[in-house]
Design a protein around this nucleic acid. Structure first.
Length: 271
DNA sequence: ACGAAGCCCTGCAAGC
DNA sequence: TGCTTGCAGGGCTTCG
């Protein structure tokens, strides 16, 4: 599942190869994604030159003159540069044909991802307008989390995964950051001290940046056209380790469900 | 305004 | 071996 570090790795891999190139043609094979792909996306985008590739949370923003293409990879989505002659597979839903034979291919077996267009307007796309700060940006810090969490009774982990609070922190990294900060995932957000929110903000940044660094080696895959950005192999300390010993204290890690998500935590190290 | 639950979808693992 | 069932998950949407 692409988490924020994978999305950023994708952005860094694609930006130098696509920025400045003209998008000649869009081919949509499957319009039924998380949201239906706009019927006129082909006409709206064709012929425009990509100015920049940006990211906000897990959303990738392809900035063209007067219009932007917004892509979310959902759970199983990926973007890669395909050799022009390679036939699309069953889950290769959209191709973006850029100049110089660059074919950007959107693949998404589970179709939780989205491919949207937004004509430049005073307001931002509704999905982005609601988004909290990016966890790697300057405006994400302990003071912000502390202030935003006052009088909120929702559990710390669900608070952290709320895109309106912080953009793009998924289940895995929320769990890992809470472990690193020693905070129990079920604690009501509003009961957590400023000092502890600072520790958590630092832990979030730390774990994301470690994953980003670990993913750096996969950048060459884009140029090679072999596809997948590859999943990161950072040492996960709690995710997927329920029932196994805590790597810090040895106590058995516990499993619980919050919302519809699995949570693993250490009953000793996280309080 | 807040919080909880529902929903979209397919691949994979486990159970029979 | 081949089927069925359950689960995983991001995040918007709906309901209370």
């Amino acid at each position: 599942m692409p988490e924020l570090p994978e999305v950023e790795t994708t952005r860094r891999g694609l930006a130098p190869l696509l920025e400045g190139k003209r998008l000649r043609e869009v081919r949509v094979r499957q319009r039924r994604l998380r949201f239906p792909v706009a019927a006129d996306i082909e006409q709206v985008l064709a012929g425009r030159v990509l100015k920049r590739l940006e990211r906000q949370g897990k959303y990738l923003l392809f900035v063209f003159p007067a219009v932007r293409l917004i892509i979310h990879l959902g759970m199983s989505g990926s973007l890669s540069l395909a050799p022009p002659a390679r036939p699309p597979g069953r889950h290769d839903h959209v191709d973006f044909l850029f100049s110089k034979g660059c074919v950007l291919r959107f693949r998404d077996p589970r179709r939780f991802g989205s491919v949207l267009i937004w004509r430049d307007a005073p307001e931002r796309h509704p999905l982005l307008a609601q988004l909290g700060p990016d966890p790697l940006a300057k405006d994400f810090h302990g003071d912000y989390l502390y202030a935003a969490s006052r009088r909120r009774r929702v559990a710390a982990k669900q608070f952290l995964m709320n895109g309106r609070i912080v953009a793009g922190i998924g289940n895995i990294y929320a769990g890992e950051a809470l472990f690193r900060a020693g905070i129990r995932p079920t604690l009501p957000a509003g009961s957590i001290s400023r000092r502890r929110w600072e520790a958590l903000a630092a832990a979030v940044r730390e774990v994301l940046e470690e994953a980003l660094e670990a993913g750096g080696t996969t950048l060459r895959d884009f140029a090679g056209g072999t596809g997948q950005p590859g999943y990161f192999r950072i040492a996960l300390q709690v995710y997927g380790r329920a029932g196994q010993p805590c790597l810090r204290c040895g106590k058995t890690l516990r499993y619980l469900r919050q919302g519809q998500r699995s949570t693993v935590y250490c009953p000793v190290c996280q309080r």
